[in-house]
């Protein structure tokens, strides 16, 4: 057994460890400290609002494209015969946060926010209804 071959790598390793001791730590003291999510982070969805109404016109493109099949849209006809989403639901337990829904939307009605704290106690609470998804201003 050659002592040089044995100890040199160990010393080299320790050097790196030693170096880190004097650097700024990366660990985040969550939840006391909050992460800064990137602008393009794909977190909880939000339905965009314009003129006090959800922009979504219930075109069914997002449920069609969604690979997890977790979006439920049911269209309704309003008093002026226009189409709107009477039901808009996303099952976050199944969502894989791919962002395809955002990409598919022809009217820029849905986006993904930085919100990532989605833990909950009941399965049914993971199904986000339209009201819960509407963007908060």
């Amino acid at each position: 057994m050659n002592p040089i071959n044995t100890f040199v790598p160990i010393i080299q390793g320790l050097k790196i460890t030693l170096g880190h001791l004097f650097k700024k730590p990366v660990t985040l003291q969550y939840p006391d400290e909050r992460p800064k999510v990137a602008a393009r982070f794909r977190g909880l969805h939000a339905l965009n609002v314009s003129h006090n109404k959800a922009k979504c016109v219930a075109c069914y493109l997002c449920p069609t494209v969604c690979p997890a099949k977790c979006i439920t849209v049911e269209a309704g006809e309003d008093a002026s015969h226009d189409k709107f989403a009477a039901v808009y639901e996303i099952d976050m337990l199944r969502c894989i946060f791919c962002g395809y829904c955002v990409e598919a939307c022809p009217v820029d009605a849905i986006r993904m926010t930085g919100e990532f704290e989605l833990a909950n106690y009941n399965r049914k609470d993971f199904v986000y209804s339209k009201e819960r998804l509407l963007e908060k201003k």
């Binding site: 075109c59 493109l61 189409k83």
Partner: peptide, 8 residues
């Protein structure tokens, strides 16, 4: 207006 047209 394909998004709201049933023929789409």
């Amino acid at each position: 207006d394909c998004p709201v047209c049933d023929k789409a």
